[in-house]
Design a protein around this nucleic acid. Sequence first.
DNA 1: AAAAGCCGTGGGAGCGCTCCCAGATTCCGG
DNA 2: CCGGAATCTGGGAGCGCTCCCACGGCTTTT
Lengths: 329, 329
Amino acid sequence: MVKISDVARHAGVSPSTVSYVLSGKRSISDQTRRRVMDSIRALGYRPHAGARALASNRSNVIALVVPLRSGIHVPIVMQMVIAAVTTARTYDHDVLLLTQDEGVGGLERVAGSALVDAILVMDVEMHDVRLPVLRSLDRPSVLIGFPADPSGLTCIDWDFEAAGAACAEHLADLGHREIALIGAPPAVYERGTGFAERTKAGFQRAAAERGVHAVVRPCDPEHARETAADLLRDHPGLTGIAVHNEPAVEPLLTAFRASGRRIPDDLSVIAIGPDDLAARLELTSISIPAEELGRQAVALLMDKLNGDQAPGATLLPSRLVARSSTPAA
Amino acid sequence: MVKISDVARHAGVSPSTVSYVLSGKRSISDQTRRRVMDSIRALGYRPHAGARALASNRSNVIALVVPLRSGIHVPIVMQMVIAAVTTARTYDHDVLLLTQDEGVGGLERVAGSALVDAILVMDVEMHDVRLPVLRSLDRPSVLIGFPADPSGLTCIDWDFEAAGAACAEHLADLGHREIALIGAPPAVYERGTGFAERTKAGFQRAAAERGVHAVVRPCDPEHARETAADLLRDHPGLTGIAVHNEPAVEPLLTAFRASGRRIPDDLSVIAIGPDDLAARLELTSISIPAEELGRQAVALLMDKLNGDQAPGATLLPSRLVARSSTPAA
DNA sequence: AAAAGCCGTGGGAGCGCTCCCAGATTCCGG
DNA sequence: CCGGAATCTGGGAGCGCTCCCACGGCTTTT
């Protein structure tokens, strides 16, 4: 293995100079820098990560805790994970994967052993048991999702409230008087996950403001057919529907059509979710940019690692893209 | 930070003894062990990962390279990733995530800097550019998927050839004389990915052996409707179909029904893929156990890390589960 | 002309752990 | 009672890097 002293000898400088060339923590003459870099390349030198971590107290690795529970759409998670890894690399950091089920112990382990410098937690619950640990840990963390009490934590999420409101407003603007929001599976609501509630709240608030009648239903993708049938039976006057449940979108559309409703003639539909699905189905959609969230979350984490003050709460705006499923009357 | 010498002092032993208690690399009297363990708990000691890596030349971290290209079904990837992480933990290892697009450089980086002890590569191509690097690296690796030349490498995958053959045989056994395999998107075939070709080969071989007429079509899920229509037009006598394309399954079923074919009355259907989807749709299926693959791959990697000889090739059997979509005639 | 400031570099302690080399103790058979 | 084996423990060098402390040479100030 090539070590820093080998490079130093080869370049005719001291090891500390090589270190400084690499870290940029003090000025080095152009000539020296060039000689050192040449030696590094010539010898194929790579700093030993462990030695570096030991001496500098920085591992240049961040932990990413991924959820593995039901009711969360896997492709979105994957997109965020990829975005997080890619972004971390631009900051010269790597990503260590932890699963939700390692729980509190996992966080304490990777932080306590100095395996990671910081922690990114996806899919935070309202009353997440990990919150106290994250607050007390000596390492910065960023949460994707908002718990009930975000004090002392840095959180980021999509602005679901605004997304829900945008749906209701869009439908109201188009003249619909009776609208529905089909949301996440019941399990998600029961778990008290914030995003589902916030979408609902925004939807209902905006509907109320516009004097539009609004109903909200959870939906298990496996039982999309029943959900759709029940909804249309209970509310025959329904003409506008927002779906906040990625995997249920296609089954629901099928079910609506099976119930004799034409889209968009009888029923206008908005999807809240990734743009690609909506684009393919020609649905008006509120896009929730997964990559953007992953990217920003890592950026926040890096800010905190640099000792910068990070905002406690960040809400990413969503964007309504009108397509053929919600035509103007 | 609590360090090993703090524990040693607290327990009245030497640091080396603490180290040996933790590693188990030499015998320790029960009494001493207990005292040391008590001190560790009392002080909340956690070995510093970097120091450990430096001194022992082992980081206890493995790299996992995840694909991010099109044509691979994301939930399957995620299942394998989760399984890999979970399994690695049972071996006291963590998982560092790398993306495909870091390419060769990424592998050299994490291996050269001793960030990871071993490498697990998902979604290997036939003529993968990373193969030479993996062969020359001083760290063990395991590939998920088989390249054209697997010599000198440890590879594991599902037995797609057998899966394809099982489909043809099952259909032939039920009396079908004209059958089709609807496969991965064209891009996957063009890329020369092994699994698509192998399924095809098994399907065709078994069909030939049974004297059954077989056709194979790639299929882009976005154009499932057209694929289905074309296929039924070109081969009106078709009565048995195998689908090896997870996201296309539902669109295809819809398309078949739209073409006036009843399932299973007019058309028997087998799905090759995760069991949950097939079970929900009541389809006969050949299940490809994603978790199992992730688990086994990590197990192989750990064997190699321990210096054990690992088999060069491992093929995981798939299992045919008969459901209502392929009734006996 | 001496003092003060600046820039570029070297020396080397120390980060926390592992594991080689010994040393101490106990146990056994002869 | 002794030699040797077996069992358990301690000491401490060394892993490869970072970063504090110095230092020499040069320029600018007093």
